[in-house]
Design a protein around this nucleic acid. Sequence first.
RNA 1: GGGGCCGUAAGGUAACCUGGUAUCCUGCAUGCUUGGGGUGCAUGUUAUCUGAGUUCAAAUCUCGGCGGCCCCA
Length: 479
Amino acid sequence: MDIPKENFSEWYNTLIKEAELCDLRYNLKGFVVIMPNAADVISRMYRLYEDALEARGHRKSYFPALISEKNLEAEKDHVEGFAPEVFWVTRAGKNELEEKMILRPTSETAMYPMYSLWINGKCDLPLKVYQSCQVWRYETKATRPLIRGREFYWIEAHNVFDSEEGVLSQVQEDMETTEEMIHQSFGVPFLFFRRPQWDKFAGAVDTYAADTMMPDGKTLQLPSTHNLGTNFAKVFNVKYMDDDGEEKPCWQTCYGPCISRIFAAIVSIHGDSRGMVLPFHLANVQAVVIPILRKEGSETVIRFVQEVTEKLAKNYRVVADFSENTPGFKYNHWELNGAAVRVEIGARDIESGKAVVVRRDTGEKESVPFEELPKKIGEIGKEMNASLREKADEWFATMLKEADTMEELKSALENGEGFVRIPFCTDSLEGEGCAEKLKEECSANVRGSRHDANEKPSGKKCIVCGKEASTYQYAARQY
RNA sequence: GGGGCCGUAAGGUAACCUGGUAUCCUGCAUGCUUGGGGUGCAUGUUAUCUGAGUUCAAAUCUCGGCGGCCCCA
């Protein structure tokens, strides 16, 4: 596609179109069609993520997409936070509905009334149930395909415990799940933050979130997990009978990895000027076989390529490209589409007993004897995964900066890039004033303090107000 | 939340200012040619977002709707 990645916005839009990830012509603001090239990868990600959750004791469910107005309004902070971006269903056919409904923007208010019926005693706890679904939010900010839409595809896991300890250890587990999936499996680096109080999920006690960084230096929130305390349990009557014979409200968490957005991060972080690059286990095409045909002897090559393809197909997702295009055209096409390994086979190769094998991320070429192809492709896959992650980690490390004064912060953000660690006065309401000033001065948001590392400033002053700093916060421009 | 720009074929565009026959590239189809990094040629194929207004006449001017992009907070 030949668009340099430095111009991220243009690069991203071009990739979306040319690699046929989304069709943007749906003509409803904030809604796109996710095409097979993207949907296949997204399905694979869903499967892996669901496996990771189920391995930790979560079970799958399907809840309705519509929620009654009554339910939505039960939790005061929650409804206040979400009401501005809720899609309403107020009419059916020709009738105005007596009881209005909403399209779920998230499913707390759909699930917890049911939880109230399901949970009676300690024996029902912990309850760990998730669903994979679409949700809808009437975004007023600029929408971008897969990154921010009015509809997105996610998993939401809703967990119930009999104590605050259960909640805190669930947050810990969610952090581990995030590391395993987002970083280890998908090769996407992130920082795991505890959000400041003014920026938490509507109705939560605490919000934690994994923030990655896009190539243009702006941060993008990936999974978030929320300590809901007993806030929702109290209004939805989710309670259990304790040892002392008294009914007590349950403790809850919810965890929400947005798979469609994580896909956008994977594509953005690993991709290059030729197009999409995906971790081997996510790639739609793990190996593409390109026959090199000449006028004479093409039948032999075709037959040979078919045989090789069949053998490889036992272990990998493989296609052989017999289209009429020239080899060069095919190379470009499959690089754009993120095929992990390319195998070129012509008469010359058949004679020498070796195929030319090319690795997508580095472009490295080598000759591999035909009988070793299956093993070799597996090895390349492993190396590719490790190297994609390492490369992303190295780049991510260069995006972490530090500032003790507003001037330093401004110069650190001069190109609008990166996370800047800053000493800050407090998470409280007083802190919000400082965060607002900070935003005014350098258009960066305060994203929170590290939850995956213990960082305390000593003897430092708040970067905004100059009072004693009690915490390190991270400032960044955000999507 | 504030400001700016834009909407012509499947994609990208010219014509718009100064109203009158809609341009070219890519794609797609067919045939030949070519084939180890986006082959070449020929023929064919499809368009003025939407609604109203002005006008003999609107892609072009005016207003609304819908949709998209960019910048600032």
